[in-house]
Amino acid sequence: MSDKKARSQGAVQTTGHAWDGDIQEFNNPLPTWWLWAFYATVVFALIYWVLYPAWPVGGSFTKGMFNDITFVDSDGSVKTTHWNTRALLIRDLKEGKEARLSQEYMSKVADASYAQILADPEMMAYTRSVAKGLFGDNCAACHGAGGQGVIGLFPNLADDAWLWGGSIEQVHKTIADGRYGFMPAFSDTFDAKQLRDVASYVLSLSGNPVDGVARARGEKIFQTQEGGCHYCHTPAGTGLKSQGAANLTDQIWTIADVNGTDDPAVKLERVEKVISGGVQRQMPHWSERLTPAQIKLLTVYVHELGGGQ
């Protein structure tokens, strides 16, 4: 209160302007701490301009001094450049503390054979922790965080049933080169009755109770030129791994959601739908996106996820 009074009595300097006759503007000095902070930023800027890239000059710019970065380029040559984030990153990826640590293991993994990795608990522990991150960044969007997949779209990797084979070599090939799961659509080949017949036979292969007469007619379609199913699924129905053709004799379904219902009629419908519509599923190839060592880690990880074979 008394402060305010002092001001109105002219103890504080005013700017000298008067609006509407009597409205005046005080002219208080800046707080000292604020002023010093301001000077400090000015000094900081001056030092920064000397050390770091800053001012444009003609077609180029001042590059800074005393903090050049020396890094090893992709071709192995050693280069030195002015301070910049890209060079910093190259150096960090090769020589940073974390990079060194992971490189030590990575190069060990890169040099080791699959058999060696599988036999070495320390490398396996490293593989699990790193591959889990890689799987999350690259594979989980399709196969799910735990590899459980999405029925109809993306296969389950956590069970021990494999479309393309569960050996290390086959899993490696799947990841590096990608896979194209293809089964032709039979909508033009079969009429509704034939479709029902062959679907009945397919369901019977995994022990589902079906109409015996339809099953017998379906077997003929499956095992002869008429349907040609046996070419890919084999006469026994166990599937050709080289074609990625599903095993139809187990309880595991990757496209037709047979286990999702108890109603035999709906089961039949779901199988019919797959046969009439065919299948086209794309597993992308990763040989360009991931390094050979990363693919190795993922192969071991997925192989283990599915129980290994």
């Binding site: 380029d73 071709d75 040559s77 910049n84 890209r86 060079a87």
Partner: peptide
């Protein structure tokens, strides 16, 4: 097709 060092020249 490029060495990483090439991109560092542009900063």
């Amino acid at each position: 097709k490029y060495d990483e060092g090439y991109f560092a020249e542009f900063r």
